[in-house]
Design a protein around this nucleic acid. Structure first.
Length: 619
RNA sequence: GCACCCGUAGCUCAGCUGGAUAGAGCGCUGCCCUCCGAAGGCAGAGGCCAGGGGUUCGAAUCCCUUCGGGUGCGCCA
C-alpha cells in the first residue's frame, strides 16, 4: 500500500500546523456512507446498523460516547454465513465494557424489525450475520438498469477537488512503454475518482526548464544541419533518435539557412522553444493513441522569472525551514567528484525525510526541486483538497521531500499521495522483447499500441497493482482465452449482447424501460441471485478502489463478474431453466434479460473507468 | 550504510484499510459438447501467507527484527 501522505512529525516551528490530519487517517472524505448516494447497499445497511446502535444507546443498552467509526458491514467470505456481516459487537465490546454476544443479541433484535432484514444471527466470536430479502437484490437490478452506466457512481457536489499529475515525461522524445503504464494508470485513476464523485483535474507538468531541453535544442540543431545536406554531429550526450529529423526539416522551413553559421548562443533559445513545442505535439499525439487527454499542461519554464519560485522558498524560509549548509556525503557509494559545498537546503527532515534537500545549487541556480516546490504550491493555491502525483518507481527517492514540501506549504491541510509505477517487462511468446523501430533504444508507446491495440493495452496494464512489475506479452494479451482477462470480460459482454438480440428476436421487449418494469420475482434461482449480489458489490468496489487510489481493483472485479456470468451461462447447458432465453415464456425471459442487462451495465461502467470500449461481438 | 517498494499454491498474481475454513488463472488429476457463442464449464489435489517476536477478542493485513529481491541516495530531471 502507499505510504502515508502526511509527515510523521509536524514542524516544531509552526504551531499552526494542524494535527487535524490525524496520523494514519488517509481517507478523510466520506462517501458511500450517505444513504443511497452510490446505491451501495452495503453502505445502506451500515446506516441501518449505526441507527440501531444509536437507538440502543438512547435506550440505555449501550454507554454514550462510543466511536462507531470502526463498525463495518461487509460481505462474508463464506456465502453460507449470509449476505452481510457486521463486526459491530466485537468492535464495541471493549469500549462499552460489555460482552460481544450481548451487544450482538440486542443489535440483532433491533435489526430484525427492519423489513429489509430477514434474519440476523449471532455467530462466531460476535459476528452478526444478516440476510436480506431477495427483493433487495432485485431492487439492485432495477437500480442498475435505471441508472445505466452511471450505476455505482456518485453525483457531483459531495466529493473533493483532486489534482492528478501524471506522465510528466520530459519533452525530449516520444513516450515509451514505462510512460504508457503511467499514462494509463493516471487516466484510469482520474476516471475512477471522477466516477466516485470528485472534481478531477488531469495535469501534466512539462519539465522544460532544465539542461535536458538544451540538449534537445542542440540535437535538433544537428538535424537542422542535416536537413541542409550537412553531416549531423550527434556526439555523445545528444539525443540520437530519428524522431528529431522532422524537427530539423521544420527548422529549415522556418529559418532557411540563416542559423547555420551562427554561434549557439544566437540560436539556442529559438530552437529550444520550437523543439519543445514539437515534442509536446508528439507527446500529445502519443497520449491520444491510448485515449489520454490532459486538462492542464503546466510548464516548469514558465515559473522562472515570475518570482513564484522565490516566493515559495521564502515562505518555507519564514517557517524556519530553509538554511545554508553543507550536506554529509552519502553513505556507501561515494560519488567520484564529491566535495563538501554549501547549498541552500530545505529542512525536509522536519517532515520525516531522511536528509535535508538542496533547493539551490552551489553555483546559485535552482535545483529541479525548487520549481517543483513552487509548482506544488501553485496546485495547493488553486484550491485542491488533495494532490496525487504519479511517478516512475525510479523516482521513489523523491517522494518524501515532495510530501514534506506540500505539508509545509499547506500547513498539513492538503495530502499528497504519490503512486509509484513499477516497470513493464515486454515479452513476445515468452521471450524478452526488444525493439527499436523508431527511437533507437526503447520501445515506444506507439509501438505497443500499434501491436496490441488501445483497449488491450489499457486493460492489461491495469491488471496489476501499480507498485508491482508488469509482464506484457504481445502474444498473450491478444490471446482469446480464459486466462486473458481482457478477452474474458469482453466475451461476457458479447455474449450478453448476443442473448439480448435473441430475446428480441423471440419478441421480448429488451429496452431498458421494459426491462426495468419486468417481473423480477421470476428470478429466484440461487445462482441467479448470486449474480445479482455480485452486481450489488459494484458500487462498493468503486468506493473502495477510489479511496485506495487503486484502479486495478476495477479490473479484477470485472473479471470476477464476467466469470460469474460465464458460469451461470454454462449451467444453462445442464439445466434448461437456467438458460437466459426461455422459449415460450416471455415474462421469465424478460426477467432474465434484466439480470444480464444489469451485468452489461456494470461492465460498461467498469470498462468506462478503465478507458476501454466494450465489445459487442468477438471476431 | 540508509530510505522506499516487494516476498501469498509448482508458475503469474488477487486478497475488500484488522474479521470467520486465505482466493483466481496457468500447470496437474477426473468429469462435461444432438443444448442461448464449449475460443468454455464443473470437481479435486496443491499453503508454516519468507523466518522470528509483538499489539488484541481476532493479523497475510498494523509495529519491531532477521533474511532474500528491486529501486533510489548533493550541485540530473
Amino acid at each position: 500500500m502507499a505510504p502515508l501522505p502526511h509527515p510523521a512529525r509536524t514542524p516544531p516551528a509552526s504551531r499552526a500546523a494542524r494535527p487535524a490530519v490525524a496520523a494514519g487517517r488517509r481517507i478523510r472524505y466520506r462517501i458511500g456512507n450517505r444513504r443511497g448516494l452510490m446505491m451501495n447497499i452495503f453502505a445502506d445497511i451500515r446506516v441501518l446498523v449505526i441507527d440501531a446502535l444509536n437507538a440502543m444507546t438512547d435506550a440505555g443498552a449501550l454507554p454514550r460516547g462510543l466511536d462507531l467509526a470502526a463498525v463495518a458491514v461487509e460481505p462474508p467470505r463464506d456465502p453460507a454465513h449470509g449476505d452481510m456481516a457486521t463486526n459491530a459487537a466485537m468492535v464495541l465490546a471493549k469500549p462499552a465494557g460489555m460482552k460481544p454476544r450481548d451487544i450482538a443479541q440486542g443489535l440483532a433484535e433491533r435489526l430484525s424489525a427492519d423489513p429489509r432484514i430477514t434474519s440476523a444471527e449471532v455467530a462466531g466470536p460476535g459476528f452478526l450475520n444478516l440476510r436480506l430479502g431477495t427483493g433487495q437484490w432485485r431492487g439492485v437490478l432495477r437500480a442498475a438498469i435505471a441508472a445505466g452506466p452511471a450505476f455505482g457512481s456518485v453525483p457531483k457536489g459531495h466529493g473533493e477537488r483532486i489534482n492528478v499529475e501524471f506522465v510528466s515525461a520530459n519533452p525530449t522524445g516520444p513516450m515509451h512503454v514505462g510512460h504508457t503504464r503511467g499514462a494509463v494508470f493516471g487516466d484510469a485513476l482520474a476516471n475512477l475518482l471522477d466516477f466516485a464523485g470528485h472534481e478531477v483535474t488531469r495535469e501534466y507538468y512539462v519539465n522544460d526548464g532544465g539542461a535536458q531541453v538544451d540538449v534537445l535544442a542542440r540535437s535538433a540543431f544537428e538535424r537542422y544541419r542535416e536537413a541542409h545536406g550537412l553531416e549531423p554531429q550527434i556526439s555523445e550526450g545528444l539525443y540520437p533518435g530519428d524522431y528529431l529529423i522532422p524537427v530539423g526539416e521544420a527548422l529549415k522551413a522556418r529559418f532557411g539557412d540563416s542559423l547555420l553559421d551562427l554561434p549557439e548562443a544566437d540560436w539556442l533559445d529559438r530552437i529550444r522553444d520550437i523543439a519543445i513545442a514539437e515534442m509536446m505535439d508528439m507527446i500529445r499525439a502519443d497520449l491520444e493513441l491510448v485515449g489520454v487527454r490532459m486538462d492542464v499542461y503546466s510548464s516548469e519554464r514558465a515559473l522562472y522569472g515570475t518570482g513564484r519560485i522565490e516566493a515559495a522558498i521564502a515562505r518555507l524560509d519564514q517557517a524556519g525551514l530553509i538554511y545554508e549548509g553543507v550536506l554529509e556525503p552519502p553513505k556507501g557509494k561515494l560519488p567520484d567528484d564529491w566535495e563538501p559545498r554549501e547549498q541552500t537546503l530545505f529542512r525536509s527532515t522536519s517532515y520525516g525525510d531522511d536528509v535535508d534537500r538542496p533547493v539551490r545549487k552551489s553555483d546559485g541556480r535552482w535545483t529541479y526541486f525548487a520549481p517543483d516546490i513552487a509548482y506544488h504550491w501553485e496546485k495547493i493555491d488553486r484550491g485542491f483538497d488533495q494532490l496525487i502525483d504519479i511517478f516512475g518507481a525510479d523516482h521513489g527517492g523523491y517522494v518524501k521531500r515532495m510530501q514534506a514540501a506540500v505539508a509545509a506549504l499547506s500547513n498539513g491541510r492538503v495530502p499528497l499521495d504519490v503512486k509509484l509505477i513499477q516497470l513493464v517487462r515486454l515479452f513476445k511468446n515468452g521471450e524478452p522483447f526488444k525493439m527499436s523501430k523508431r527511437a533507437g533504444t526503447f520501445v515506444t508507446l506507439r509501438d505497443v499500441v500499434e501491436q496490441a491495440g488501445r483497449d488491450v493495452t489499457r486493460f492489461h496494464m491495469l491488471t496489476r497493482k501499480n507498485d508491482a512489475a508488469l509482464d506484457f506479452d504481445f502474444a498473450k494479451v491478444l490471446e482469446q482465452s480464459k486466462d486473458n482477462p481482457v478477452w474474458y470480460v469482453q466475451y461476457a459482454n458479447a455474449r450478453i449482447n448476443s442473448v439480448l438480440a435473441r430475446a428480441a428476436e423471440a419478441g421480448v421487449d429488451t429496452s431498458d424501460a421494459a426491462l426495468a418494469g419486468a417481473d423480477l420475482d421470476l428470478i429466484e434461482h440461487p445462482a441467479e441471485l448470486a449474480l445479482a449480489r455480485r452486481i450489488a458489490e459494484w458500487p462498493r468496489t468503486v468506493d473502495i478502489a477510489a479511496r485506495a487510489h487503486e484502479p486495478h481493483r476495477i479490473a479484477f472485479y470485472l473479471y470476477d463478474l464476467a466469470s460469474d456470468l460465464h458460469a451461470l451461462w454454462n449451467r444453462g447447458n445442464d439445466d434448461q431453466t437456467l438458460r437466459f432465453v426461455q422459449d415460450g415464456d416471455p415474462a421469465t425471459t424478460a426477467a432474465k434479460m434484466a439480470l444480464v442487462r444489469s451485468v452489461a451495465v456494470v461492465i460498461a461502467a467498469g470498462l468506462g473507468i478503465l478507458g476501454v470500449t466494450p465489445a459487442k461481438e468477438m471476431r
